[in-house]
Write a protein that binds this DNA or RNA. Structure first.
Length: 894
RNA sequence: GGGCACAUAGCUCAGCGGUAGAGCGCUGCUCUUACAAAGCAGAGGUCGGCGGUUCGAGACCGUCUGUGCCCACCA
C-alpha cells in the first residue's frame, strides 16, 4: 500500500491521478456507479427511438431462489452483449423479471408453514396463495437485488413477473386460442404422479436414475391352469386386468384367450397376446395394470381392458382386501410375503437394476397413474419449432447442440400442462352443472351459478414459454412488442434447452404467426453456455460442499473480477471450471488496469485522437496497429458470442502488450518531455481509452471509474467519446477498427526489439545478475532496429562501454548484436551449457527443415508460402549455428 | 437400450491440416521513477492406444479403451 512516488515527483502528478489509490477498491466504486447509471436512465430502452433494436429477455430466475454462480454467468454474458450493443448505438433492451416457479415455490412455502405445524389444507386455498404472495414479497426480489451488485444493465422500468396481471392475461389468451384450435384438450391418460407433491408432472419433470429393484416371479392361476409373471412392483397386481404374452410365443399360445384368476382379488382376467411383450425378458408373460403403468395402459387400450385404480393420491392402497390402507412401499413386501405364503412365489426376488422415475422437485418415486388432465397437442407446434431452426430463422449456437434440440422437437409427446397445485395460473375452464365445459377468455365473464372453475393450475413452463412476448405486452399490440420482438438472442444454459427454449419456440411461433415466418420467432439466436463447475470440473453440489457463492467472491474481489472470471471461461456450450484462484487472477487484472491507467494519468495522458503517422515513433505505430487488430478481433468474437476468446484477446493485449511493453517504451519519451512527450501522452491516452471501452462490457465498474478519470482532465475527442460526450463509458461509442493504423512494418520493428531485449534479459537471468547491476555493453544494430539503441539499453539495463571495456560474451539476434563485458561476473560453465543447448536446438531445426525440403512430395504439394517459411527457417538456423559456434569459441576458459 | 460429447503441460481448458498454446500452479532472480494483487527469466506435453488417408495429422477417417452428459415405459 505504499506510494513509491518520490516527494518531488508527487507535485507533478495530475490531479486525477493523485486521487487514485495504488489499489483498486471495488467496494468504493460499485454502488456509487450503479446508482449513477440507473439515475441517468442509461439502461432504459425507448420503444419510440429510431435506433435498431437489440433485445434480450432474461431467463427469469425463480422467485424462491438466490443468486448462484450459474445465474452470475448467465447474467454476465447477457450484460456484456447488451452493453456492447448499447455502445454500438442499438436501442438495447435487457428485460429483467422473475418466474413464479409454481411447484418449487409452493413446496418452499409449504415447508415454511410446516414449521408452524400447518399444511396448506389447514389454511385453505385462498389463504395459502395469499401466504405465497406474502412470501414472494419478502424473498422474491433477492436475485434482482443481487443483479444490481453484479452490474446488470437491465431496464428496471420493464421488470416483469410470470404471475403478474399482464402475463396472466397472456396465459389465459393463449390457452383460449389453443383450446379453440383444438391444440389443448382434456384426456384421461397415464401421467407421472408425485405422491408427495400430490400433482401430475410432465415427462421432463421426472428424473430417471438407476435404482436397485427386486424382480420377483409370481404364479397366477390354479393347479389346473397357471402362468408365471415377473414384476418389480408386486403391489400393482391388485389392479391387474390381464396377463399378456407375445403372440408368437409357443409356450403360451394355448393359453391366449383363456382366463386366469388374480390372487387375493378373486378377479378372473383374460390372457391376451400383444406384440409389446418381449418373450426374452423374465418369463415372457406380463401382468397388465392399465391404471398404473404406461405400457400396460396401451395394452389395455388395444384389448379393451378395464383400468382399476388401486392407490389414492398419496400412494396408499385403496383396493379392498388385506392390503387396503398400506403405503405402496409397505404394500410391496406385504404382497410378496402373502404370495409366498400361498406358494405362488416361483423364483425368489433377485436384485435388478432399472431406471426409476423420481420427482425432480422432491425426489419422491413417481407413481404412474391414470388420471384426467389437460394436454397440449404438440405435434403441429413442434413441427414449426423444428422448421424454424432447420431453415435458419433461429440459430442455435454452438451448432453442435442442434441435435439435442431436434431430438426434442422431432419426438415430443403431448405435454401434460395441468398441475394439482394452488400456486399458479388457474386453468380458465369452467364446468357446468350438467357436465358442460367452457373455456373462458381473458375478457369474458365466467359463467354464473352452478358452474365451477377447474381447480388445477398450469405447469410453470406454460407461462415462462410466453416470456419473450408476454413481457412486451402481448396480447396487446404494444409499442414495445412492435419494436423489440423478435428478441435478438436468448442466453441460457444448455440444461434448459427443452424445459424452456423449446416451449418458447412452440408458443412464440404460434402466438405471433400472423407476423409471418421470419418475424414470429421468439429469438434470432439461442446462445447456449455451459454449467459452472468447481476447479476440478466436478458438478457443484451441496452435499459435496464445493459450491461457490458469487456474492462472497464479489465481496472479496469485486463484481468485475467475478464477471471476468466467468466470461473468460465461457466457451460456447461448454462447461467451465472455476475456483477462487481464478477470481483472484481476475482481480489482479483489474488492479493492473487500474495501475496502468494511474500511470498514464500521472503523466498527463488524456484521450485524444492519435496524431498523424508522421509524428509517431515506432512504438506508437506498433501499439496503434495492434490496437486496431485487437479491436477487430474482439468485436468479431463478441458478435459470435465467443466470450472466452474475446476476454483472452483483451487480457493479453492489455497486459502483455500495452502494460508490459508500450508503457515501458513510453517512459523514455515521457521523461524527455517536449513534443515527443505530448505525442506519447496522446497515444497512451487513446490506447487506454479504447482498451477500456473494449473491456467495459465485461468489467463495467473499473472501466467506468478509470474512463471517467481519464476524461476528467483532458480534452475529450469526439471519436472516443461518442455522441453522448464523456458523461459515462456506458454510452460511449463502441470502438471500431481503424484499418489505416495497421502497420506491419512497425510490428516487425517492435518484435525485433522485443527479441533483442528478451535475449539480453535471459542472458542476465542465466548469469544471476541483479536488476540493479549495471552491465556495460556495446550494441550494434542493423536494419529497422538501428534507431532503437536507447530503448534496448534501457529495457535491457545496459550501460555505455567505458574505458577498459573487454567483451566476454556476444548475444545476437536477427538485427542486434550485443557484446557484454562481464569480467568477474560471468558463469562460464553455465553460459557454455546454455549455448550448447541452443546449438543443439538449431541443428535439430536444420535437420527438420532439410528433411522437408528434400521431400519431393512436400515441394510438389505444399503451398509456396509454407515452403518459403521453411527455407527462411533453414537459413536462420544455419546462421544461428555459425553464431553460436563462434560464441562458444570466444568464451574464456573456465 | 439408444444418442451425443470429451480424452492436449501438475490442474482447468483453447487450438482442429503446416515447427505444441493460455490461465493458475511450479522454479530462480528482483523493491526497476504505475502496480509485490507486481516485474523479469525459466522448467514442464512422444496432444489416451492402435490402424488408415496425406508430402505432412492433437487436428481428417476407422477402431479400441476410458470418462462425462442427455434421452428411454422393457414388466
Amino acid at each position: 500500500m505504499t506510494d513509491t512516488a518520490s516527494p518531488q515527483r508527487k507535485g507533478d502528478l495530475a490531479d486525477a491521478a493523485a486521487t487514485l489509490p495504488t489499489q483498486y477498491a471495488p467496494a468504493q466504486v460499485e454502488e456509487k456507479l450503479y446508482e449513477r447509471w440507473v439515475r441517468a436512465g442509461y439502461f432504459e430502452a425507448d420503444a419510440k427511438s429510431d435506433r435498431p433494436p437489440h433485445t434480450i429477455v432474461i431467463p427469469p430466475p425463480n422467485v424462491n431462489g438466490s443468486l448462484h454462480i450459474g445465474h452470475a454467468l448467465d447474467m454476465t454474458l447477457q450484460d456484456a452483449i447488451t452493453r456492447r450493443k448499447r455502445m454500438q448505438g442499438f436501442e438495447a433492451l435487457w428485460l429483467p423479471g422473475m418466474d413464479h416457479a409454481g411447484i418449487a415455490t409452493q413446496n418452499a412455502v409449504e415447508k415454511e408453514i410446516a414449521k408452524e405445524g400447518l399444511s396448506r389444507h389447514d389454511l385453505g386455498r385462498e389463504a395459502f396463495v395469499e401466504r405465497v404472495w406474502q412470501w414472494k414479497g419478502e424473498y422474491g426480489g433477492r436475485i434482482l437485488n443481487q443483479m444490481r451488485r453484479l452490474g446488470a444493465s437491465v431496464d428496471w422500468t420493464r421488470e416483469r413477473f410470470t404471475f403478474d396481471e399482464g402475463l396472466s392475461r397472456a396465459v389465459q389468451t393463449i390457452f383460449k386460442r389453443l383450446y379453440d384450435d383444438d391444440l389443448i384438450y382434456r384426456a384421461e391418460r397415464i401421467i407421472n404422479w408425485c405422491p408427495r407433491c400430490m400433482t401430475a408432472l410432465s415427462d421432463i419433470e421426472v428424473d430417471h436414475h438407476e435404482d436397485e429393484g427386486e424382480l420377483v416371479s409370481i404364479r397366477y392361476g390354479d393347479d389346473a391352469q397357471s402362468i408365471v409373471v415377473a414384476t418389480t412392483r408386486a403391489e400393482t397386481m391388485l389392479g391387474d386386468t390381464a396377463v399378456a404374452v407375445h403372440p408368437d410365443d409357443e409356450r403360451y399360445k394355448h393359453l391366449v384367450g383363456t382366463e386366469i384368476e388374480i390372487p387375493f382379488t378373486g378377479r378372473r382376467v383374460p390372457i391376451v397376446a400383444d406384440r409389446h411383450v418381449d418373450p426374452e425378458f423374465g418369463t415372457g408373460a406380463v401382468k397388465v395394470t392399465p391404471a398404473h403403468d404406461p405400457n400396460d395402459f396401451e395394452i389395455g387400450q388395444r384389448h379393451g381392458l378395464p383400468s382399476l385404480l388401486i392407490m389414492d393420491e398419496r400412494g396408499t392402497i385403496t383396493a379392498h382386501g388385506p392390503f387396503q390402507g398400506l403405503d405402496r412401499f409397505e404394500a410391496r413386501p406385504a404382497v410378496v410375503a402373502a404370495l409366498r405364503e400361498e406358494g405362488r412365489v416361483v423364483a425368489e426376488k433377485r436384485p435388478y437394476l432399472h431406471a426409476v422415475g423420481h420427482c425432480s422437485r422432491c425426489d419422491t418415486v413417481v407413481e404412474p397413474r391414470l388420471s384426467l388432465q389437460w394436454w397440449v397437442k404438440v405435434g403441429p407446434l413442434a413441427a414449426e419449432a423444428s422448421a424454424a431452426v432447420r431453415d435458419g430463422r433461429v440459430r442455435i449456437h454452438p451448432k453442435e447442440l442442434e441435435p439435442r434440440y431436434f431430438a426434442w422437437t422431432d419426438n415430443l409427446l403431448d405435454w401434460c400442462i395441468s398441475r394439482q397445485l394452488w400456486w399458479g395460473h388457474r386453468i380458465p375452464v369452467w364446468y357446468g352443472p350438467n357436465g358442460e365445459m367452457v373455456c373462458v377468455g381473458p375478457d369474458e365473464e365466467p359463467p354464473g351459478d352452478g358452474w365451477i372453475q377447474d381447480p388445477d393450475v398450469l405447469d410453470t413452463w406454460f407461462s415462462s414459454g410466453l416470456w419473450p412476448f408476454s413481457t412486451l405486452g402481448w396480447p396487446d399490440d404494444t409499442e414495445d412488442l412492435r419494436k423489440f420482438y423478435p428478441t435478438s438472442v436468448l442466453v441460457t444454459g444448455y440444461d434448459i434447452l427443452f424445459f424452456w427454449v423449446v416451449r418458447m419456440m412452440l408458443f412464440g411461433l404460434y402466438a405471433m404467426k400472423d407476423r409471418g415466418p421470419a418475424q414470429s420467432v421468439p429469438f434470432r439466436t439461442v446462445s447456449l453456455h455451459g454449467l459452472v463447475r468447481d476447479k476440478f470440473g466436478r458438478k457443484m453440489s451441496k452435499s459435496r460442499g464445493n459450491g461457490v457463492d458469487p456474492l462472497e467472491w464479489m465481496d472479496a474481489y469485486g463484481s468485475d473480477a467475478v464477471r471476468f472470471t466467468l466470461a473468460r471461461g465461457a466457451n460456447p456450450g461448454a462447461d467451465l471450471a472455476t475456483s477462487e484462484e481464478w477470481a483472484q487472477g481476475s482481480r489482479n487484472f483489474c488492479n493492473k488496469i487500474w495501475n496502468a491507467t494511474r500511470f498514464a494519468l500521472m503523466n498527463g495522458a488524456a484521450p485524444a485522437a492519435p496524431p498523424a503517422r508522421e509524428a509517431l515513433n515506432a512504438a506508437d505505430r506498433w501499439i496503434l496497429s495492434r490496437l486496431t487488430a485487437v479491436t477487430a478481433e474482439v468485436d468479431a468474437y463478441m458478435e459470435d458470442y465467443q466470450h472466452a476468446k474475446a476476454c483472452e484477446a483483451l487480457y493479453h493485449f492489455a497486459w502483455d502488450e500495452v502494460f508490459d511493453w508500450y508503457v515501458e517504451l513510453a517512459k523514455g519519451p515521457l521523461a524527455r518531455g517536449g513534443a515527443e512527450a505530448d505525442t506519447t501522452r496522446a497515444v497512451l491516452g487513446h490506447v487506454l481509452d479504447v482498451t477500456l471501452r473494449l473491456l467495459h462490457p465485461y468489467i463495467p465498474y473499473v472501466t467506468e471509474e478509470l474512463w471517467l478519470a481519464l476524461h476528467a482532465g483532458g480534452e475529450s475527442d469526439g471519436e472516443s467519446s461518442g455522441e453522448s460526450g464523456s458523461a459515462s463509458i456506458v454510452v460511449a461509442a463502441w470502438p471500431t477498427a481503424d484499418g489505416s493504423r495497421r502497420d506491419p512494418e512497425a510490428e516487425a520493428e517492435i518484435a525485433a526489439l522485443q527479441q533483442a531485449v528478451t535475449e539480453v534479459r535471459r542472458f542476465r537471468a542465466d548469469q544471476g545478475l541483479k536488476v540493479g547491476q549495471k552491465v556495460a555493453a556495446t550494441v550494434t544494430l542493423a536494419g529497422r532496429l538501428a534507431a532503437h539503441e536507447a530503448e534496448i539499453r534501457s529495457l535491457a539495463r545496459l550501460t555505455e562501454p567505458a574505458e577498459g571495456f573487454a567483451p566476454t560474451a556476444t548475444l545476437q539476434t536477427a538485427q542486434a548484436t550485443v557484446q557484454l563485458d562481464l569480467s568477474g561476473v560471468i558463469d562460464v560453465a553455465a553460459e557454455r551449457a546454455r549455448l550448447a543447448k541452443d546449438l543443439a536446438a538449431a541443428r535439430k531445426e536444420i535437420a527438420g527443415a532439410e528433411a522437408k525440403l528434400g521431400n519431393e512430395g512436400f515441394l510438389g504439394k505444399a503451398p509456396e508460402a509454407v515452403v518459403e517459411k521453411i527455407r527462411t527457417r533453414l537459413t536462420e538456423a544455419q546462421a544461428d549455428v555459425v553464431r553460436i559456434s563462434s560464441q562458444l569459441a570466444a568464451l574464456p576458459e573456465s
